[in-house]
């Protein structure tokens, strides 16, 4: 291939992901954002103004004049939304932390396991995905409800005298999120630990580091990129999670995904739910940018 040809080819290759982002992320976002600036109306679609090419340029300019940030202002005025955002972040944060506590030892064990076992172990981690997500969350209702499996087990073992109330509390949500997103935490941590050179641990021990301290000084810092990736992969979808709080959480549980669903379906307020979604996106962009930064730094290190 000529030099020019290869340059055009490499441009084209880069174009594909950009085109993907533009069509499936940027364009939908602009549409959502535009709806968030509208006002609700009893119409089809349920908001106005609606841009029509038939109106001509003057009509579109007139429509743009009608757009307003009222919905965003409303979000700050009603404590419900702020509380829902904060509560979502809190629930997602606690769940992410719990998932990390559980996933790290699992990933570590997998990375230490004999090489021949590892594909099987990986398979087992991914196995739950073969069943519908919804069914797995429903199954947790059967486990956690007062007369459910967990309580029956604990009662029969004599560990408790009365059934624990877990279902319809935040704890049920934590359990649901941790369970559902655990593989997303395990896999990046495992991948970071698995490619680590074991002689680094030996070098640390050789220089006077007992095993536990070698873990904290060498293994853990070197797996940090995996930890951050795992936390992002759990935290970001958990903030906007709707199914788990809806099925496992109680009526008092406030999460932004649920609020959005109510606005959209029950209240049929598309502009307000679009505003909720826009703000949610902005909240999530911050950790994503942070994550990207971390990755860029890790790549720098890898050079």
């Amino acid at each position: 291939m000529t030099k020019l040809g290869s340059r055009i080819f490499s441009r084209l290759v880069i174009l594909v992901p950009y085109a993907w982002l533009v069509f499936f992320f940027l364009v939908p976002f602009v549409i959502v954002f535009r709806i968030s600036l509208s006002t609700t109306a009893i119409a089809q679609p349920p908001y106005e103004p609606v841009f029509r090419l038939a109106d001509g340029i003057a009509g579109i300019v007139d429509n743009i004049r009608q757009l307003s940030f009222d919905n965003f202002i409303w979000l700050t005025e009603d404590a419900l939304y702020i509380n829902a955002y904060l509560s979502s972040i809190k629930i997602a944060g606690i769940s992410t932390f719990l998932a990390l506590l559980i996933a790290y030892p699992i990933a570590y064990g997998m990375a230490q396991a004999p090489r021949t076992w590892r594909p099987t172990l990986l398979m087992l981690v991914i196995l739950p995905f073969w069943t519908s997500f919804l069914i797995r969350v429903y199954a947790w209702i059967a486990i956690l409800k007062p007369e459910g499996l967990l309580n029956q087990l604990l009662l029969s073992l004599g560990l408790i005298n009365e059934p624990l109330i877990i279902l319809n509390t935040n704890w049920a949500i934590y359990i649901g999120i941790v369970y559902s997103y655990l593989p997303f935490m395990i896999l990046p941590i495992y991948s970071a630990l698995e490619k680590m050179d074991h002689s680094l641990i030996e070098a640390a021990q050789d220089l006077g580091c007992p095993p536990i301290s070698a873990f904290w000084k060498v293994t853990f810092p070197l797996s940090l990129a995996g930890v951050v990736a795992g936390c992002m992969l759990v935290f970001i979808p958990a903030v906007g999670e709707f199914v788990i709080p809806d099925l496992l959480g109680g009526s008092q549980t406030l999460m932004i995904g649920k609020t959005l669903w109510t606005e959209f379906n029950s209240n049929r307020d598309w502009p307000l739910s679009a505003a909720v979604a826009t703000v949610l996106l902005l909240i999530l962009v911050v950790p994503i940018v942070f994550f990207q930064n971390m990755q860029a730094k890790a790549e720098e290190r890898g050079k």
Partner: peptide, 28 residues
């Protein structure tokens, strides 16, 4: 155990800690 022996080893792969500077590697 290795961490209490008065011997040190230079590894074939060098096993330098990638997250530390040259200085902190030597001072480890």
């Amino acid at each position: 155990p290795p961490y209490r022996r008065p011997v040190n080893m230079m590894f074939q792969s060098y096993a330098l800690f990638p997250h530390m500077t040259v200085e902190s590697n030597i001072g480890f």
